[in-house]
Design a protein around this nucleic acid. Structure first.
Length: 291
DNA sequence: ATTCCAACCTGATAGC
DNA sequence: TGCTATCAGGTTGGAA
């Protein structure tokens, strides 16, 4: 599930594949929940253009075209942005893969879940956006257009300070976990890294935000930076669907301390990790280490 | 203003 | 074996 590190890893790998390459054609699936801009409009807008920048805003990617229009991407839950050079064997499930002829297993062929397929004038590697569940999004932006969904994002999780977090916890009745997941408070944190950071900070995810101290907010913001930066270094977490654009797995799932470890022993104290639903999300914590 | 919850979508898996 | 129910979670939008 792509959160800030997975989106950043994607950005770093896809950016060089997009910049200054003239788009010969964009192929798409039919209009659906995925397309915030009608597919035909998107095809027209991209043809003949090239990208001049690809930036990350929280979990969003924003590509700027050479004519000043921009394209907003969100990977949702199962979105994958990758190159035709990817070792794409692993893009498909084992069952889907076994249905393919051996030569088809080696090279990725766009399937019904491949909503965007970019071809370039230079005939180099293609770029695909595949998303099984269509929680991902693509949106075309006219020059100067700042959509609500970007405008309401809080500061990026990599630059958040304890001070800022503390300020936004005041008088909030909700849980600290819900607050950390709120993209208008901090942009980029999702379920995995929220649990991991709260573990490192020693704070129970269900604690009422208004009862978290200034010092604990410092620890949470430090922990957030630590887990996010470390995850980017290791290529992100490949717990369910994430695959880097080059087709490789991330490495951070091997460094998880609590996420999806319910019943297993805490690495610090040996107590069994608990799982319960907090902020409408499966939440994992150590009942002994986190107060 | 804040919080909660259903809806969006599909594949994997647990249970019968 | 095969079918059905349940779960996963990012974001939005509407209800409480």
């Amino acid at each position: 599930m792509p959160e800030l590190p997975e989106v950043e890893v994607t950005r770093r790998q896809i950016e060089p594949l997009l910049l200054d390459r003239e788009i010969a054609a964009l192929e798409t699936t039919a209009d659906s929940y995925f397309f915030l801009t009608p597919a035909a409009e998107l095809r027209r807008a991209l043809k003949g253009r090239s990208f001049k920048a690809l930036e990350r805003r929280g979990k969003y990617l924003v590509g700027t075209l050479d004519d000043g229009w921009r394209v907003l991407f969100h990977l949702g839950m199962t979105g994958q942005l990758f190159s035709s050079e990817a070792s794409s064997l692993r893009l498909l499930s084992a069952t889907a893969r076994s249905a393919l002829a051996p030569e088809e297993q080696l090279k990725f062929r766009p399937d019904q879940h491949t909503h965007l397929h970019l071809r370039f004038r230079d005939q180099g590697p293609d770029v695909f956006f595949r998303d099984v569940r269509k929680f991902g999004k693509v949106l075309l932006l006219a020059p100067g257009d700042e959509p609500e969904r970007l405008a309401r994002l809080g500061p990026d999780a990599l630059s958040v300070t304890g001070e800022l977090l503390f300020a936004s916890t005041r008088r909030r009745k909700t849980s600290i976990k819900a607050l950390v997941l709120d993209q208008s408070v901090i942009a980029g944190v999702g379920n995995i890294y929220a649990d991991e950071a709260l573990f490192l900070a020693g704070v129970r995810p269900g604690r009422r935000a208004s009862r978290v101290t200034r010092h604990e907010c410092e620890k949470i913001s430090t922990a957030l930076r630590q887990v996010l930066e470390r995850s980017i270094e290791t290529g992100g977490s490949s717990i369910s669907d994430f695959l880097a654009p080059d087709g490789t797995d991330g490495g951070y799932q091997d460094e998880r301390r609590v996420y999806a470890r319910a019943g297993d022993a805490c690495y610090s104290c040996g107590t069994a990790i608990k799982r319960r639903v907090i902020a409408q999300r499966g939440t994992h914590y150590c009942p002994r280490c986190q107060k």
